[in-house]
Design a protein around this nucleic acid. Sequence first.
DNA 1: CCACTAGTTTGCGATAGCGCAAAACGAGGC
DNA 2: GCCTCGTTTTGCGCTATCGCAAACTAGTGG
Lengths: 236, 236
Amino acid sequence: MAKVDTSLVAHLPLFAGMTPEALDEILREARSARYPKNSAIFEQGADAQSFFLLLHGHVRAAKTTPSGEEIVMRYVAPGETFGLAMAIGAARYPATATAVDDSVVLIWPTSAWPRLVERFPALAANTLQTVGTRLQESHTRILEMSTQQVEQRIAHALLRLAKQSGKKLDHGIEIDFPISRQDIAQMTGTTLHTVSRILSGWESQGLVESGRQRIILREPHKIVVLAERSADSGAA
Amino acid sequence: MAKVDTSLVAHLPLFAGMTPEALDEILREARSARYPKNSAIFEQGADAQSFFLLLHGHVRAAKTTPSGEEIVMRYVAPGETFGLAMAIGAARYPATATAVDDSVVLIWPTSAWPRLVERFPALAANTLQTVGTRLQESHTRILEMSTQQVEQRIAHALLRLAKQSGKKLDHGIEIDFPISRQDIAQMTGTTLHTVSRILSGWESQGLVESGRQRIILREPHKIVVLAERSADSGAA
DNA sequence: CCACTAGTTTGCGATAGCGCAAAACGAGGC
DNA sequence: GCCTCGTTTTGCGCTATCGCAAACTAGTGG
């Protein structure tokens, strides 16, 4: 059982309001593992045997439709939990998790959850907050998909990624993991073609700089303006 | 403080695994209130002073965009909770709740939540389940909006409403509260015109029967087929 | 250093669904 | 029983975005 440095995780929302002893006890139930870039962590539909906390790297959670189309539900950043199926009463994972970069995770067996919650009620409360926040984010996404056109949705998506996992550069913000046009299309409910066209447009205006699985927001402020522009307003 | 019959609510998921005494103690903190049809229960952006459990009637939760467009997040059926902003760490309601029918609710002051959770940890666990289920439903909706065309989305939406709040008829299922084309449009990310056109089409095929704020699914099974038909398949 | 592969760009025609406008309808109030 | 207002229906042109096809490009492995 790898020894995990408690100080690295003590400040995470998941462990808010816990004594160091409690934290220690919880961590003792976990093991850590490393997933290389592009490896699967779990598959949609598989038995939810574990839940996870990401320490390093980035993980993509995606859902596949019966007809085989895939859409990205979220990108997991370090410090966030994922694979919480059991906490919400699901026996199987509702999505597939893939490491998009070399990643390190803590893994708890699902079977430990009831015991942990009983012993540390704050865990349930903290998880409730997390899940609640995600619910709100999902609602925001539904709202955007219902009311905005593709360009705004892409702008919002990139801004969110930049906020969550952006690396500040001298001039601009770089999204700190490999992400393709296809991925962005799957986050915004459009096609890679349309994403490519829009990014090309932005690039020629100097708003972004991008390449193979790589995007830098050069003018975040202008992208914010784009994102907020309502459907009709603005021309030329 | 109106006396609430515990037997009416004891079986609800929110109170799963609780002793009658616990339930009684929780209910003692609540008051009940009646909201007439079309009255507002709370407004988006207002201080989340209370949370609610719907006893009778139906409530619509809708979000409004900065530019004034409204979209329906969910319809609340009897037995469900709503206005849980505080449980997920929000100080203000993220949506507006309106009674679409004469409705009766239980109301707890938000301030009671921390105390209740501390005393009855099962409350947090149960709420986590509820919120988790809603998160999954939101994900399903995002998936649908990303991959399906309007006709399928409407089919799914109606089937869900029928399941949640359908009244069985001799031949078919009636959605048991007033709902307009506009409402359905706001649930599926389209316009009332398109909804009207599609329902007219279905009506002429005998799949549904509908009128002013009223919809009866006459051939639920055929609507299921419609809902599952993938984007391309099927013609004529 | 080169061939290969996955990712990206771009052109072009097709179309689902929007947006506007106007007419028809139906439930409740006086 | 008639009037009024909110809801629904329907026609018609428009366009954002898709879908397909093909060319292009940048890393990767040999």
